[in-house]
Design a protein around this nucleic acid. Structure first.
Length: 136
DNA sequence: GCCAACGTTGGC
DNA sequence: GCCAACGTTGGC
């Protein structure tokens, strides 16, 4: 089981919308590094749902329900989409600022390369952030 | 709203 | 194939 972090601007697609929809497709990724990560995802993998711009915090946990397929919104067929369903919200959102202030997360991709929209998360980071978010 | 960081494009 | 110019993202 691998862990990931997916980013969305709440103006475009928020956690609340994600929860209401249940499962939805993560389309529109037009970055090759992010694409590689999408292709690596397996059904059942978990991902943190991060709000960029507004909030700048990790707000929930999602799960991969469908592995990478050609992004229907991409006419060149060069990019991929993955389906996610919302699993559970964090009891306390984990702020980017809090991660930056904590040395344990100094190497985290979110801290180092904030522009990447789909990122891997290590098992250690996963556990620590769940804890910070008030989950077991 | 600004601007730094990054990716992409296109001229040479 | 290099690199300057440009566009986009996202933190501040």
């Amino acid at each position: 089981m691998a862990y990931w972090l997916i980013k969305s601007e709440p103006d475009t697609w928020s956690w609340d919308q994600h929860v209401k929809k249940g499962a939805d497709s993560w389309t529109g990724v037009r970055n090759h590094q992010a694409k590689v990560h999408l292709q690596t995802m397996k059904k059942g993998d978990k991902a943190f749902f991060y709000h960029s711009n507004e909030g700048k915090e990790i707000v929930g946990v999602s799960e991969v329900t469908k592995e990478a397929y050609i992004d229907p919104t991409d006419k060149t067929n060069a990019f991929y989409a993955v389906d996610f369903k919302a699993v559970e919200p964090l009891k306390t959102p984990v702020k980017l600022a809090a991660l930056k202030a904590d040395k344990n997360f100094a190497d985290m991709v979110l801290v180092k390369n904030s522009r990447l929209s789909v990122q891997p998360v290590t098992a250690d980071e996963w556990k620590a952030i769940r804890k910070l978010g008030g989950l077991k």
